[in-house]
């Protein structure tokens, strides 16, 4: 195979991996979430590296499997590797990812995971439905490891907040 073809193929493989949806938040791609670290060629094999989000996230295996299947379906010989360092943080969720979360009723993480105090300081989380700042935390744990439960005191909607990590 000539070099330009390999390059073109790699670009295709990157697009395919980048557009794999998250199994629990299917409106987000792996790119939106910021967990796809790299897609490179090793000989004739496409190697995709994916960062885990939360240690106990049950979606981890499904995500890796989805990437593998997507690449294989497109005819690539592929392998998926887990990449622990640097550790994923919610700061890596893209701006588009933030917009998509909000559009789907989940308050996006306040971008300050690097600032440890923000993990615990009670910061204002705006309601994704009406944008009101008058919200209260119902529980620090929600339906998945990455979310907390909130309630809006303005429009009275319950909603989820994507926790800083």
């Amino acid at each position: 195979m000539a070099t330009p073809n390999i390059q073109a193929n790699l670009e295709t493989a990157r697009k395919i991996a980048a557009n794999v949806p998250d199994p629990e938040l299917p409106y987000l791609t792996l790119t939106d979430l910021g967990i796809l670290r790299s897609v490179e060629l090793e000989g004739d094999t496409v190697v995709a590296k994916v960062s885990p989000t939360y240690s106990g996230c049950p979606a981890l295996d499904v995500i890796e499997q989805s990437v593998l299947e997507a690449l294989q379906t497109a005819g690539f010989k592929a392998r998926v590797e887990r990449s622990l360092l640097p550790p994923w943080t919610t700061d890596w969720i893209t701006e588009e990812g933030h917009q998509k979360l909000k559009a789907n009723g989940i308050a996006p993480p306040l971008n300050a995971a690097a600032d440890k105090s923000a993990l615990f300081a009670t910061r204002q989380v705006n309601c994704p439905a009406c944008d009101s700042g008058q919200t209260e935390r119902v529980s620090e744990f929600g339906s998945t490891p990455c979310k907390a439960q909130y309630r809006c005191n303005q429009c009275l909607e319950p909603f989820e907040y994507f926790k800083c990590h």
Partner: peptide
């Protein structure tokens, strides 16, 4: 209900950490 979500969530954290 909130506790029923919290405790398995934390159990998952611990089991996930042990797995790694």
């Amino acid at each position: 209900l909130e506790e029923d979500l919290s405790m398995p969530n934390m159990a998952l954290d611990l089991i996930g950490q042990s797995r790694a």
